[in-house]
């Protein structure tokens, strides 16, 4: 009986999904700015994935005789330093492309880590309540009592720097946000009729939590995640700026910005401007996209959109 229902519903769901996508495309084009955000993020994603092919130089290859070359200067072997070279004669454009890989990887991976922990904790907390709820929420309160950057510095000093440690630390820093939202939604959803129905049909607790409740709270989480990616990228930049991010031979936008400090006074503007722009545009794009997604998924605004 239920198999027949599912099979019968599948074409309708697909058709509904297609309709939603069409509506999303229409609404996005009408809003204009999200289109630019998506285009920029696609470019950034391409730079991150194809950086090795696109970069004209090895991003770590030094050339001391060509250090601090202006943008569009001729580099070694007739190549061009499109965005200039840094204090060690490394190509800024190539480092920017490789930096995209680290910044975006860290951004998405940290959200995956933080989201997984937070969603699981929030679901368990909201569904079971009682001492488990108290324990998880108080743990979150304790963590929120510490400034995040301070907490991250503490962890990184103990764990050591490195991409995976950075992802772990940034992920751990995000879980409370997800846990609180998921808990609140779970508290209300667990009393709903469809959850009662699943319970009456003999579904296991885990099945109810992850297959019945979770799909119904994904929409707000998508919005939160899109904002969070931006804040995580900023945090990565801040930690790399402080020298606590990734190793010195791995280019990131934050560490490039940090390296530009000493040369900014000396009029070497390109060392700060380009990584700064990359960070700003990426964060802005995620924020615009998150903003649009929030409005798009809000049923109260559906009529207007």
């Amino acid at each position: 009986m239920s198999e027949m229902q599912i099979n019968a519903e599948a074409p309708q769901r697909e058709s509904g999904f297609r309709a939603e996508m069409r509506r999303a495309r229409r609404v996005m084009i009408a809003a204009r700015w999200p289109v630019f955000a998506v285009i920029f993020l696609i470019v950034a994603a391409l730079a991150a994935t194809l950086g090795g092919l696109l970069a004209p130089f090895d991003p770590n290859r030094q050339n001391l005789m060509l250090r601090l070359a202006d943008p569009m200067s001729v580099g070694p072997d007739g190549g061009v330093f499109v965005l200039g070279s840094d204090a060690l004669g490394r190509d800024v454009f190539s480092r920017l492309l490789y930096g995209a890989r680290v910044s975006l990887t860290v951004g998405f991976a940290a959200i995956a880590v933080g989201g997984s922990i937070g969603i699981t904790a929030g679901l368990l907390s909201g569904y079971f309540g009682g001492w488990l709820d108290d324990a998880i929420m108080r743990l979150g309160d304790i963590q929120l009592a510490f400034p995040f950057i301070l907490l991250a510095i503490m962890f990184l000093v103990v764990l050591g720097s490195g991409v995976w440690n950075l992802i772990l630390v940034l992920g751990i820093g995000q879980w409370v946000t997800y846990a609180r939202i998921v808990r609140a939604d779970t508290l209300s959803l667990r009393e709903k009729e469809f959850v009662e129905a699943a319970r009456a049909m003999g579904d296991s607790t885990l099945s109810i939590i992850f297959r019945t409740i979770l799909p119904n709270i994904l929409a707000p989480l998508t919005v939160i995640a899109s904002f969070n990616v931006a804040s995580v990228i900023l945090s990565e930049a801040a930690l790399s700026f402080l020298g606590l991010g990734v190793p010195p031979d791995v280019p990131t936008w934050g560490s490039m910005l940090a390296e530009s400090r000493d040369t900014l006074v000396a009029n070497k503007w390109w060392l700060a401007i380009f990584p700064g722009l990359a960070i700003m545009l990426t964060v802005l794009s995620f924020n615009i996209l998150g903003d649009w997604l929030r409005d798009f998924l809000d049923p109260r605004l559906r009529e207007r959109t």
């Binding site: 601090l68 204090a87 400090r261 000493d262 040369t263 900014l264 006074v265 000396a266």
Partner: peptide
């Protein structure tokens, strides 16, 4: 600790002597 800040403080008149000037900031 930060070299650019030391340079800025010297130029602003808030310091009379600073150590470890970064070579790139000598001209400034």
């Amino acid at each position: 600790p930060e070299a650019s800040t030391r340079t800025a403080e010297l130029i602003a008149g808030n310091a009379d002597i600073i150590t470890n000037v970064v070579p790139e900031q000598v001209d400034a």
